[in-house]
């Protein structure tokens, strides 16, 4: 059980790795952006995991539930903001890729570099 309690964090680490790998190693710009999305999503998992309390429930105080245990609302608020930041970055990144494709006729880093060298 003790190690199972860290499983979420390890998955966070592995997702981080997968996303980071795509950003660093892929040359297709759309793929890089997807990697960035995965990378950011991993962080969502980190925050939400730390706010969870055993036997708890979502932090919505209702009648008849007065003595329930609630998970921490704060990390959830932070991640709501982070999700918004993530989609904003993705949208802007896609806008740039569309323009790169129009100017260079390719969405691959190598082609872009090649065509500027000439």
């Amino acid at each position: 059980m003790n190690f199972l309690g860290l499983y979420n964090y390890w998955v966070f680490a592995v997702l981080l790795m997968i996303g980071f790998y795509a950003v660093v190693a892929k040359t297709n710009l759309v793929k890089k952006l997807m990697g960035l999305s995965l990378f950011q999503a991993a962080v969502f998992l980190l925050y939400i995991t730390m706010g969870k309390i055993s036997g708890g429930t979502a932090p919505i105080i209702q009648k008849g539930l007065e003595d329930a245990v609630f998970s921490n609302p704060l990390p959830q608020v932070l991640i709501l903001t982070a999700i918004v930041v993530g989609i904003s970055t993705t949208a802007l990144g896609l806008g740039i890729i569309v323009r790169i494709n129009e100017e260079y006729g390719s969405i691959d880093e190598r082609d872009v570099q090649e065509s500027d060298r000439r």
Partner: peptide, 23 residues
């Protein structure tokens, strides 16, 4: 455009690293 895409990638990784750190 490629310059700004690179900046976007590295900037977002930087900001996300910071987010992990404060997390």
């Amino acid at each position: 455009l490629p310059a700004v895409f690179k900046y976007l990638m590295m900037g977002t990784i930087g900001a996300t690293f910071y987010l992990i750190g404060i997390g």
